[in-house]
């Protein structure tokens, strides 16, 4: 469907990657860890390696969770926009196919949240 209007209605998306000054958005969801109310929204460089993204961006964001301390990103089972995903930590976000506004889902075996996912 499209907007009903008295004129030819068209609009630009407000959040095109070009509007982020060379950066991009990446969202990250860590299921069963509802201490954090929703997925995180990160600003990251597309040139950043996946490994750097995990250690420099994701790790500080989740640090307040008791299960974050020993988390080994090497064990992670990732999803990219709800599809299975095996990123290469040495390659950049862009090279790994993590495009602007992609949703990453992080699952690490054994780290299933506390109190059945309440925390």
């Amino acid at each position: 469907m499209s907007v009903k209007a008295l004129y030819q209605y068209s609009a630009e998306p407000r959040d095109l990657q070009a509007n982020f000054n060379g950066m991009q958005l990446v969202y990250l969801y860590w299921p069963n860890h509802l201490l954090f109310c929703s997925p995180f929204a990160f600003l990251a460089s597309p040139e950043m390696s996946m490994g750097e993204f995990c250690e420099q961006v994701v790790r500080p964001a989740i640090a307040a969770h008791p299960q974050a301390a020993g988390l080994d990103f090497g064990q992670a089972q990732w999803q990219l926009n709800n599809q299975p995903f095996s990123p290469d930590p040495a390659l950049s976000l862009a090279q790994n196919g993590v495009a602007h506004k992609a949703l990453l889902t992080l699952r690490v075996p054994g780290l299933d949240g506390i109190a059945g996912g309440a925390i």
């Binding site: 499209s2 907007v3 068209s10 609009a11 630009e12 998306p13 407000r14 958005l25």
Partner: peptide, 13 residues
């Protein structure tokens, strides 16, 4: 009405 909501002024973004 996608054309309407692609313009959303999302505070985080």
């Amino acid at each position: 009405e996608p054309e309407k909501y692609i313009q959303s002024w999302l505070p985080v973004h």
